[in-house]
Design a protein around this nucleic acid. Structure first.
Lengths: 174, 174
DNA sequence: TAAGATTGACTCTTCAATCTTC
DNA sequence: GAAGATTGAAGAGTCAATCTTA
């Protein structure tokens, strides 16, 4: 993706064989899957970052803008944002700070609960978010190199893993 | 995984529906797959970090130890490590620095090429690596909550994505 | 007491610049 | 000049501590 070179063999296949020849057969496929997910994520994130760079957006800030754009009235308490993105409060504060500095978001006090702060997307924020979506749709999401039906299979398998991990309740799987 | 709460619905399903109702049908499944991979990776890495914490190992340093342990004579040039892990040179220097400080690795000059440095795993490094493997095998890799055949399907689909991304040559896909 | 947000210390990453050696 | 490694700055994350408000 960047200046990294391709290897003349599949490194994860190699690792799996070593696991099997070390007597860890029952864990070998799990290791291979986890390692694959980590590597693929690395590739996806660097594709996304590259597209977002001209807009001066990071992936984290893009995700925040998406959340705000698709929420009714374009505002959300910071705590809700953290829960959706599954990141710590400090990460939210940081992302909002930068979005505010860039004029994409405003901080507004909650009308009734004075502990909570609302993030509100601005017109500039909406414009930037729309550009970002166009770029990612055109250059990342439609270029995954897998047929539609294969993507569906992959999505369903990942959904089960996400559910097992407690991302959302079990009764929503099937 | 940590103190994060589960949501009462699948957030990625919601996003996918919004994509479809915005007329981005062709990109919707790609968006859902990319988002899924990012979330699952987040979960896997935090499971791994939690297991590795008692050993005072990060996932990055664990990966370096694995590479060294499975290489003949337990040594590797820093550049090779970066290529295998697909990270920048600076990240390798950082990881090796910490492993050296922990006594798990030694830096040794290359016998013929005085530009390159070799990382050599120590006895302490091997011991720690073996403990790490036991922990991850027992508490992560065998507990993915998916049947063996489903894991195989998932692995094969991810392999195609990795290949498309240029992780390794196309003629090794299968 | 607990919830929401912020802050500061620390880790790990990328990127660009630098230094040595080929 | 190019390759290998290091360095320093900046971005983004965790975690623990803190402050305000409920």
């Amino acid at each position: 993706v960047t200046g990294r070179k391709a290897l003349p063999f599949d490194p994860i296949d190699e690792a799996r064989k070593r696991w099997e020849s070390s007597g860890w057969d029952d864990a070998a496929i799990g290791m291979a899957v986890v390692t694959s997910v980590v590597r693929v994520q690395q590739v996806f994130v660097s594709m996304i970052d590259q597209e977002l760079r001209p807009l001066e957006l990071s992936m984290a800030r893009y995700e925040v803008l998406m959340l705000l754009m698709f929420s009714k009235s374009g505002e959300l308490p910071l705590g809700k944002i953290g829960a959706r993105l599954q990141v710590q409060p400090g990460a939210v504060t940081n992302a909002i700070d930068r979005l505010v500095a860039d004029g994409c978001v405003k901080r507004v006090p909650h009308p009734t609960d004075r502990r909570t702060t609302l993030a509100v997307i601005t017109a500039k924020g909406r414009t930037k978010a729309e550009k970002a979506v166009q770029l990612l749709n055109a250059h990342v999401y439609v270029k995954l190199g897998l047929a539609q039906d294969k993507l569906e299979e992959l999505f369903e398998l990942m959904r089960v893993v996400r559910c097992q991990a407690g991302d959302f309740p079990e009764d929503l799987v099937g």
